[in-house]
Computed example of a mutant assay.
Amino acid sequence: MEEQRKAERRRGEEMRPPPEWLIQHGLNRTNVDAVHTGECWAAAKSGRCRTVTRQQAIEALRQQVPACTHCRPDTALGILD
């Protein structure tokens, strides 16, 4: 029974679409280190990201949070300096 629940949970996670936007936090969780697109490999590797809305990602970039140099969320959002 437990194995069946684990398998169902795993299938559900695999079918869930990736988030569109992520904010990466520092090691102490109070610093915001970067904005990422939801499919960024660097964000997945860090493990310190949370899902945010498009508007929250735009606001973070406007507040001078750096855009990831790999996935370029600023370009995807149309925010270029």
Rank of each mutant, 00 (worst) to 15 (best):
R10S: 05
R10Y: 14
N28S: 07
A57H: 00
Q56L: 06
S46Y: 04
L61G: 01
T37A: 08
E8P: 09
L27W: 11
A44T: 07
R9P: 07
Q64F: 14
L77M: 05
T37R: 05
Q55I: 09
A43H: 00
V65Y: 06
A76I: 11
V52Q: 03
G26Q: 05
R29S: 04
E2I: 15
P17C: 15
D81K: 11
I23M: 03
R29M: 09
L80G: 10
G26C: 04
E14I: 13
L80K: 07
K6S: 01
C71W: 03
R10E: 13
W41R: 14
R16I: 10
V65R: 07
R9K: 12
L77W: 02
R54K: 12
K6N: 04
E3W: 05
Q64L: 13
H25Y: 10
N28F: 11
P17E: 14
L27G: 14
E59K: 13
H70Y: 06
D74I: 00
A76R: 09
Q63I: 02
H25L: 15
L77C: 11
P73W: 04
T30K: 14
G26F: 07
A44P: 04
V52I: 04
A60H: 01
R48W: 05
A43F: 05
T30P: 03
L61C: 02
W21A: 00
E39I: 14
K6Y: 04
H70K: 13
D81M: 10
I79C: 08
Q56R: 09
A44F: 07
V65G: 04
G26I: 06
L27Q: 06
S46A: 11
G26S: 11
D74L: 02
Q63H: 15
H70A: 09
E14H: 13
C71Q: 09
N28G: 07
G47E: 08
T51H: 12
L80H: 07
M1F: 06
P66E: 11
A60C: 07
K45F: 15
T53F: 00
V35T: 05
E14N: 12
E3T: 12
L77T: 02
E8V: 01
E39Y: 06
G78V: 07
T37E: 06
C40D: 02
V32S: 03
A44K: 14
R11L: 14
E20M: 10
K6Q: 06
E2R: 12
H36F: 05
T75S: 08
Q56E: 10
K6V: 01
H36R: 03
